[in-house]
């Protein structure tokens, strides 16, 4: 089990030109605290939608790696999205699940991954060519090249401790988050 902020820092240190989408709750707080960037799109709601926002972005920007960082509860709400992504096979999409086996924002109730549900196995069964689980710093380090360079879609479950690091509230206004992202990615086209 890894510290979630250490894991996010290790993942995003190597992001290069990757575009990042975060799922609501802790993954949004983690990414904003560790590596804010206009190339990050933060979700504060729309539970179950993060991976598919990443799919739409990956199809629209085939030359860029798209990295979705989300939580186990968030992905469990949109499990059908694994089937949709598996069927579409976007080669430039990677999904990282920061899996604390808890619903962290609502009182740390056990999620289904604490009770035997294996998200990496589900992703493989849905057609992801690469899906694995990392529970140590060494395993995470070994998984990073595939996350950024492997033929996607890639899913990486990172087992993290059920801690709640201090929340540094990131950008809140959705329209601003969207416009900041589009201006950074598309330049003058963004207003068109």
């Amino acid at each position: 089990m890894l510290d979630r902020r250490d894991a996010v820092a290790a993942i995003l240190r190597r992001r290069g030109r990757a575009l990042v989408v975060t799922g609501l709750g802790s993954p949004t707080w983690d990414v904003a605290a560790v590596a804010d960037s206009p190339h990050n799109f933060y979700l504060w709601g729309a539970m179950g939608g993060a991976a598919v926002v990443g799919l739409g972005l990956a199809l629209a920007q085939p030359s860029r790696r798209v990295l979705v960082l989300t939580g186990d509860g968030e992905l469990l709400m949109g499990l059908g999205s694994l089937a949709t992504i598996g069927a579409e096979r976007p080669p430039n999409l990677s999904v990282v699940v920061l899996d604390n086996e808890r619903y962290g924002e609502t009182g740390m109730q056990a999620s289904h991954t604490a009770r035997g549900v294996d998200l990496a196995a589900m992703a493989r069964a849905a057609g992801f060519p690469a899906a694995s689980t990392a529970a140590t710093a060494e395993e995470l380090d070994a998984a990073l090249p595939a996350l950024y360079g492997g033929a996607g879609p890639v899913l990486l479950v990172v087992k993290v401790l059920a801690t709640q690091p201090p929340v540094r509230v990131p950008l809140r206004d959705g329209t601003h988050i969207k416009n900041r992202f589009r201006e950074a990615l598309l330049g003058p086209q963004a207003s068109g």
């Binding site: 989408v21 179950g48 939608g49 598919v52 926002v53 799919l55 199809l59 629209a60 598309l186």
Partner: peptide, 17 residues
Amino acid sequence: TTEEEGVALLAGAWLGG
């Protein structure tokens, strides 16, 4: 697999232009 995926998908598409 369900229509709500399409709402999220097309938000991502618009982020990408």
